[in-house]
């Protein structure tokens, strides 16, 4: 201890104190302050950059998801449209078919009626003609039959017989 005290030099202590304090104040003002500020700023900017990158990544992910959803929606819509179109087409075809069938049936019906009417008319005409013809034939037969007396007698007797039955 005594040796230490003996070694202690007041002059050196004095100069060390002055020089060290001067160094401390100069460095504080001209070195540590700008250095630490820059380091902190840089660290903050790095942190911000990382956060921004993370955010961008998140946004990108969101965007991708949105796109996917949009795409899925569009696809669904397309399918819907296609399906609807197909349905419409089918309906149209079936409608057309039905209409055609109905129309056909109607036409067939009309034709049938017309044919029936024609036939009826034809039958009627035929009937008329047959009646006329038969009258004519009967006339002719009668004319020839009545011409002989015997024949007349026979007819009268036949008629008389029929009359008796009544």
């Amino acid at each position: 201890m005594e040796k230490l005290l003996e070694k202690f030099e007041v002059g050196l202590f004095f100069w060390q104190l002055i020089l060290f304090l001067a160094l401390l104040f100069l460095l504080r003002k001209y070195a540590w302050k700008p250095i630490l500020t820059s380091v902190i700023n840089r660290e903050e900017s790095i942190k911000e950059g990382l956060e921004a990158a993370e955010e961008a990544k998140e946004q990108m992910r969101q965007l991708k998801e949105d796109n996917k959803a949009l795409l899925a929606e569009a696809r669904m819509e397309r399918d819907q449209i296609v399906k609807e179109a197909r349905e419409a087409k089918d309906k149209m075809i079936s409608d057309a078919k039905e209409t055609a069938k109905a129309e056909g049936a109607k036409m067939i019906e009309a034709a049938k009626t017309a044919i029936q009417a024609e036939r009826n008319a034809a039958v009627n005409e035929l009937k008329g003609q047959v009646a006329e013809l038969s009258v004519e034939i009967a006339e002719k037969i009668l004319k020839s039959e009545i011409s002989s007396d015997t024949k007349q007698q026979e007819i009268i007797s036949a008629a008389m017989q029929n009359a008796k039955l009544n």
Binding site: E9, G11, F14, W15, F20, A22, L26, Y30, W32
Partner: peptide, 30 residues
Amino acid sequence: LNFSITKNVTSIFIFSLIIFLLFRSFAKSY
């Protein structure tokens, strides 16, 4: 009372100066 500028005092001064200049240039580079 001895306030002489001894070798140690000179060394402290020179190295303080070196430290200051080094860190000043370092700080300025920012």
